[in-house]
Amino acid sequence: MIKCMLLCVSVGFATGRLGYLQELASFSSTVIIVCLCLMTLIASIEMGKKDFLKELKQAGWKLIVYSFATIAGTLIMVWLVSPLLPLTAKDALVAASGMGWYSLATGLVFEYSPSLSVVTFVYCLLREITAMFLIPILWKRFQPPELISIAGSAAMNPSVAAAAITGDHRLVFYGMVSGGIVSVCVPIMVPFMIAL
């Protein structure tokens, strides 16, 4: 899957670089927004079908607090390290607020700054991939809430993979609920950060 995604970006990049499909530039913004709206709709229907609301009720307030702490931790840490980056603190926060949802966040950030969308794409993709490896490695020393927080909004996939490796099925539940809550916040947070 990740190979296919990188292939799509690379082929698109190569065609743009070589000057093919120039006419795409005139309506690419519309294509991006339409794709993002439809993808958000499908993703949220999936969340509704997977009893997200029921699971949210069962999860209790602590898991909801952990999900918001995941967002706060990312934003605070990125804000703290932003002076070390050749970006403004706002731009660093815009990229960080993608939280791992590469398709949506990259598209939203692209409208604001194409170069920052590269940062967002790399950041989001790495968050998911790294979580897949780190969660099973850290599993014996730490508990599911903090392990799942590594993945941000992309917690569902890494948590299923980690549960298969470790046999700890609490990870799937935490991943579903925490990933869901963080995902709901991403489409609101990215435009909010851009508007700051």
């Binding site: 702490a69 990312t74 990125v78 980056l85 050749p86 660093a92 170069s115 940062v119 790495l126």
Partner: peptide
């Protein structure tokens, strides 16, 4: 930009991890 993305990923993941661990 790719390098900055890696840096933000490391900062973001460690920030979330520490915040939830403390909580």
């Amino acid at each position: 930009m790719g390098f900055i993305g890696i840096f933000i990923a490391a900062a973001g993941m460690s920030g979330s991890f520490l915040m939830v661990l403390l909580l």
